Computed example of a mutant assay.
Amino acid sequence: MQEAENQVMRTVNDLMAFIQKRGYEPGERLPSERDLTERFSVGRGVIREALTFLEASRYIERKRNSGIYLTDGMDQVSLEALVLYSKVNIPFDRRTIMDCMEVRKILEVQAIALACKRRTEADIETLRQNLRDTRETIEAGGSIAERDFEFHMAVFRAAQNDIFTRVVTPFYLMSRNRREDFFRDPKRGDASLAQHTAITAAIEARNVDLAVELMDRHIGRVEDHYLVSMGDASPAGTS
């Protein structure tokens, strides 16, 4: 059963990569189910399940007696489809990137306020361990992209709301490539560790106002980076 599910998801990724490589436009008709079965050398059932997944994600639309069509743009697709976009390196447009960062910031600021009120000693130890692991990664000359992901997920878990964590996870998964690019600069790793350390101390002290302020500034620095990279702003302190 697990292998069959893995084959379906591999086919989903292959289909999205194929559509991107061929340059299909929104609203354009895609090859038929039979053609796709032959192209990817998988069973008809696998292709059908992969297409069902993509349709449920609003990435494609199947029209009866007409065919399979690419949907009319990113504003139509689901969060799950956006995560898949990221996995197969399909670039996001500017609006999607900005919308994702805005929603992430709203969720993260709310989560840290709850974390201050609800965190347990186990949550604090998880955050402290992450800080230690991050320091070791930096000293070894590695990227802290994955450590950064783990830290922010730990903050969400400290809010003691499982739905909150489920809602935000796709935003972090779809930003994985951008996060890896951001942390290619070693100086950003050091700065992030210092900010995470201060955030952890604020959560431990249950200082809601300080924690919210620190998280808002922390995410704001990342937003500034992407605004500059998209040519929409000057680096902080230079404008």
Score class of each variant (00 low, 15 high):
Gln2Trp: 03
Glu3Asp: 08
Glu3Trp: 02
Ala4Thr: 10
Asn6Trp: 00
Val8Glu: 03
Met9Ile: 00
Arg10Pro: 00
Thr11Trp: 03
Val12Ala: 04
Asp14Gly: 01
Leu15Gly: 02
Met16Val: 07
Met16Ser: 02
Phe18Asp: 06
Gln20Pro: 02
Gln20Glu: 12
Tyr24Val: 02
Gly27Phe: 02
Glu28Ser: 09
Arg29Met: 03
Leu30Asp: 00
Pro31His: 00
Pro31Met: 01
Arg34Gln: 09
Arg34Gly: 03
Glu38Arg: 15
Arg39Ile: 11
Gly43Pro: 11
Gly45Lys: 10
Val46Met: 02
Val46Leu: 04
Arg48Cys: 04
Thr52Lys: 04
Phe53Pro: 00
Phe53Asp: 09
Leu54Val: 02
Ala56Met: 07
Ala56Trp: 00
Ile60Ala: 10
Glu61Phe: 01
Arg62Glu: 05
Arg62Asp: 01
Arg64Tyr: 05
Arg64Trp: 02
Arg64His: 04
Gly73Asp: 09
Asp75Asn: 00
Leu79Asn: 01
Ala81Trp: 05
Ala81Asp: 04
Val83Trp: 01
Leu84Ser: 07
Leu84Asp: 06
Ser86His: 01
Val88His: 06
Asn89Phe: 15
Asn89His: 15
Ile90Pro: 10
Phe92Gln: 05
Thr96Trp: 04
Ile97Cys: 07
Asp99His: 01
Asp99Pro: 01
Cys100Ser: 12
Cys100Phe: 11
Met101Glu: 15
Glu102Phe: 03
Leu107Trp: 01
Leu107Met: 12
Gln110Gly: 15
Ile112Asp: 08
Ala113Thr: 13
Leu114Pro: 06
Leu114Val: 11
Ala115Glu: 13
Cys116Met: 14
Arg119Leu: 07
Glu121Pro: 05
Glu121Gln: 13
Glu121Arg: 14
Ile124Glu: 14
Arg128Asp: 08
Arg128Gln: 15
Glu136Trp: 08
Glu136Thr: 10
Glu136Ser: 13
Ile138Ser: 12
Gly141Leu: 03
Ser143Tyr: 10
Ala145Leu: 11
Glu146Gly: 07
Phe151Pro: 09
Ala154Ser: 08
Arg157Phe: 07
Ala159Trp: 05
Gln160Thr: 04
Asp162Gln: 11
Ile163His: 09
Phe164Ala: 04
Phe164Asp: 10
Phe164Asn: 09
Thr165Asp: 06
Phe171Thr: 05
Leu173Asp: 05
Met174Tyr: 01
Arg176Phe: 00
Arg176Val: 00
Asn177Arg: 11
Asn177Tyr: 01
Arg178Ala: 13
Arg178Phe: 11
Arg178Pro: 01
Arg179Ala: 11
Phe183His: 05
Asp185Glu: 14
Asp185Arg: 08
Pro186Gln: 04
Pro186Thr: 05
Lys187Pro: 00
Ser192Val: 06
Gln195Glu: 15
Gln195Phe: 02
Gln195Thr: 09
Gln195Leu: 03
His196Glu: 13
His196Ala: 08
Thr197Ala: 09
Thr197Trp: 02
Ala202Glu: 07
Ala202Ser: 12
Glu204Val: 04
Asp209Arg: 14
Asp209Ala: 14
Val212Arg: 15
Arg217Asn: 14
Ile219Tyr: 05
Arg221Phe: 13
Arg221Gly: 14
Arg221Ser: 12
His225Ile: 11
Tyr226Met: 15
Leu227Glu: 14
Gly231Asp: 12
Gly231Trp: 14
Asp232Thr: 06
Gly237His: 11
Gly237Cys: 11
